[in-house]
Amino acid sequence: MQSYYPERFERDMGTTEGEWLCALPRALGVHAFELGTGQARVLIGEGHLLLQWRILPPRVIALLRLQRLAVSFVFVGVEEDARQRFMKRFDLTMQRGGG
């Protein structure tokens, strides 16, 4: 989890698109959203978050293949404190545990 989330950033996420789509509603919590092909628009207060993703080639380490998505986060009209709260919850929900 980051200590600060800017209005625009990108991430390389170790997940398949199917796993991402299954986890996304839970990560968005109570926020209404519209889902499109490779994108989602999430209503946060008076503003919104535009999520866009595309499939990246897998990361290969010896015999291990990790599926990846490039995910772009763009907040429009979302106050900083609301953005920070939203992203902390989002990150906690999207974390994958090991063990």
Rank of each mutant, 00 (worst) to 15 (best):
M1Y: 09
M1S: 07
Q2A: 11
Q2D: 06
S3L: 03
S3Q: 04
Y4T: 02
Y4H: 09
Y4Q: 07
Y4N: 07
Y5W: 10
Y5T: 04
Y5Q: 01
P6D: 06
P6Y: 06
P6M: 05
E7K: 09
E7H: 05
E10C: 03
E10K: 04
R11T: 08
R11F: 00
R11N: 04
D12T: 13
M13E: 13
G14N: 12
G14E: 15
T15P: 00
T16G: 05
T16Q: 00
E17N: 10
E17C: 07
E17D: 08
G18P: 13
G18S: 14
G18K: 10
W20P: 10
W20R: 02
C22T: 15
C22K: 15
C22W: 08
P25Y: 07
P25G: 05
R26P: 06
R26I: 13
G29T: 00
G29V: 00
G29I: 01
V30P: 08
V30L: 08
V30C: 00
H31Y: 07
H31L: 08
H31N: 13
H31P: 07
F33L: 03
E34H: 12
L35F: 05
T37S: 13
Q39R: 13
A40Y: 02
R41D: 00
R41N: 00
V42P: 13
L43S: 06
I44P: 08
I44V: 14
E46F: 06
E46T: 14
G47S: 05
H48W: 10
H48E: 15
H48P: 05
L49W: 04
L51K: 04
Q52V: 10
Q52R: 14
Q52K: 12
W53I: 01
W53L: 03
R54V: 06
R54E: 15
I55T: 15
I55K: 14
I55F: 12
L56K: 03
L56E: 14
L56V: 01
P57Q: 15
P58W: 07
R59L: 15
I61K: 11
A62S: 11
A62Q: 15
L63S: 12
L64A: 01
R65A: 13
R65P: 06
R65L: 04
L66E: 08
L66T: 05
Q67I: 00
Q67V: 00
R68M: 00
L69W: 01
A70W: 02
A70G: 08
A70T: 02
V71R: 01
V71K: 00
S72C: 09
S72Q: 12
S72A: 15
V74I: 12
F75T: 10
F75G: 11
V76N: 06
V76Y: 05
G77E: 01
G77P: 02
V78N: 08
E80M: 13
D81L: 15
D81W: 12
R83D: 07
R85Y: 09
R85W: 09
R85T: 08
F86L: 01
F86Y: 01
F86D: 02
K88D: 13
K88F: 07
F90K: 11
F90V: 09
F90L: 11
L92N: 11
T93R: 09
M94Q: 10
M94D: 05
Q95C: 06
R96S: 03
G97P: 12
G98C: 12
G99C: 11
